[in-house]
Design a protein around this nucleic acid. Sequence first.
DNA 1: CTCAGTGCAAAAAGTTTGCATGGAA
DNA 2: TTCCATGCAAACTTTTTGCACTGAG
Lengths: 156, 156
Amino acid sequence: MSRLLRRRAIELSDSGHALAKRMAALGYRVTQPRLAVLDAATALSASFTAAELEHWLVTQQRSPGTASIFRTLKLLVEAGMLERIHGVDECHRYTLSAGHGHRVVCLECGALANFEQCALDGLVASLEQATGYRISQHLLEFFGRCPACQRGGVAA
Amino acid sequence: MSRLLRRRAIELSDSGHALAKRMAALGYRVTQPRLAVLDAATALSASFTAAELEHWLVTQQRSPGTASIFRTLKLLVEAGMLERIHGVDECHRYTLSAGHGHRVVCLECGALANFEQCALDGLVASLEQATGYRISQHLLEFFGRCPACQRGGVAA
DNA sequence: CTCAGTGCAAAAAGTTTGCATGGAA
DNA sequence: TTCCATGCAAACTTTTTGCACTGAG
């Protein structure tokens, strides 16, 4: 591929992607499928499943196929650019990584709000004392209805 | 089935099962597969996946088959006798329900410690104010090493 | 140029369902 | 005796893998 073409290929999907630069900085090759998945993750904005992401890419006629999507999702999670999140009954959802923090997830539309504060330190300490466990990780997520869905008025 | 046989069938698995009585009280039929799953859940004691539970039942030569196991697990969760729990990377684990509360899960052996206190009320209130979300549920789980595994000395 | 990454298709998990039979109440 | 629950097998969904080919660096 000529220098010119390569440059065009990258610009094609480079709409706003500091993300792509970050991938390159981490030593990952910046390829079309990876850019497509990052675009999709950005466009979907809230949380999404692999299937939802694939559907979006198909409608955009940019889907690299299921296998590549799964491989890319796994890679991006390892790279820290996406996070896997858990629902009450649903697992295997993803969201663009937003620094460290936890989330409030809308049960109706999947919208997310992030927050930094994690007032668990005290609880962790007292639990370690009470149980004898050495606690190294935690999972904390909140669920409810986002402001828009509350206005929307559909009964929960 | 004669009265005598029925009685024996129930005694077979009635080893310590207030659980079976609870099922009956809830209006569920107390059947061999359900007793077997309850026994397995009790024996496995910590958290377990459907596959682990089936494996235990197979080794005991009491497995009612995959389909019945899944149906029974779903039923027992609905009945509130089992809970679905989430791991960091693993979902679809189950544990015997221990009242309301949250858990500390050992990352090495899967042992659980339950605790009642859930100091999130304040956090929920301030998050509702900060985000505009109406929060109705939360997911909170801790992970680490249990006392036995710490003594066991395998590096984390 | 070279090797990491891709895309297809096929396979492997994991989970659910249809239907005739069996057993709890 | 009645109907709920079971057990098998087959279907389905979701995710992973093998392999020849392609394109990013």
